[in-house]
Nucleic acid binder design. Structure first.
Lengths: 158, 158
DNA sequence: TGTGAAAAATGGGGCGC
DNA sequence: GCGCCCCATTTTTCACA
């Protein structure tokens, strides 16, 4: 890989298609066996094993996760919280909020606000408490969009 | 489980802690072996196997996914798109937008706008094209927050 | 890279408690 | 609901092409 960036050098376009097929399959079923993957792409089990290990090492596959039902876990309420720092000097909201496990995602964004958080809580009361905690911990103002329903979530990028 | 909803009946609070530990472990490593899970919670492999199967059947574990690096897949640009229907009569934006694979999530929300989308694209040009497509396909106005950096994403709810 | 086979580990189910 | 035994399947590694 040090001598070329061209995908054509080491197997051609078909190799990329195979890798994409493997990733697409694993993105939808993270416990798919190598046997199943091998049948799907038409290669031997060990060839597939080798390819998947390389995808992991190269960081294309970053990990494997079980997905949990937040509602059944007692966290039926999802919201997007956009925050704006009050004090423009010390803008380290992500670090100040990292300990709040209700926060599932934290993105810095360009737009009216500085950060967007995705949070999951047990109830409106819990959301109110969380918002108060966010405001005081990170010295920010908040704007909240409560999720009413989710049409789709976690659709794989490929 | 049909005779009682009380967790205390079938093993007490410890059973819940074990299940939570299993879910927390699998949420972080979806390919953890039953042997590894058994060691972690101090039960036999078959007991763990039994518990995980029940968690799957009850829908607490909804599936297993490999997580992919969108940037390495050629989708380095993430954005949150808030949309408002122009025509208040036919508000079926999620269905009208489902075919756009760049849309990773679609939530109906209470707030200024009606829906929030999370999208991943290859470039600013691709984002512009996607926004045009969203507006014309679903008859909506859009407000976009481009993600500059992501502090954390996909933190498990437990 | 890919293939095939062999060794090590795991998955999956039944039985007694 | 848990622990133990058994066996099919899978994972993982190897030499060879």
């Amino acid at each position: 890989m040090s001598s070329s960036n061209s995908p054509a050098e080491a197997g051609g376009a078909a190799a990329i298609d195979v890798d994409r097929a493997l990733m697409a399959t694993l993105a939808r079923d993270g416990r798919a066996s190598f046997t199943e993957l091998a049948e799907r792409v038409g290669l031997s089990v060990s060839a597939v094993h080798q390819r998947v290990r390389r995808l992991e090492q190269r960081g294309l596959i970053t990990g494997y996760r079980a997905t949990l039902d937040a509602t059944q876990l007692g966290l039926p309420l999802t919201a997007f919280v956009s925050i704006t720092p009050t004090d423009s000097q010390t803008d380290d909201a992500p670090a100040l909020l990292a300990h709040l496990s209700a926060i599932e995602e934290c993105h810095a964004v360009a737009g009216v606000e500085s950060y967007i958080l995705k949070v999951r809580v047990a109830s409106p009361d819990a959301l109110e408490a969380l918002l108060k905690e966010i405001r005081s911990a990170a010295n920010v103002t908040t704007r909240t969009a409560v999720v009413l329903s989710t049409s789709y979530e976690d659709r794989p990028p490929i």
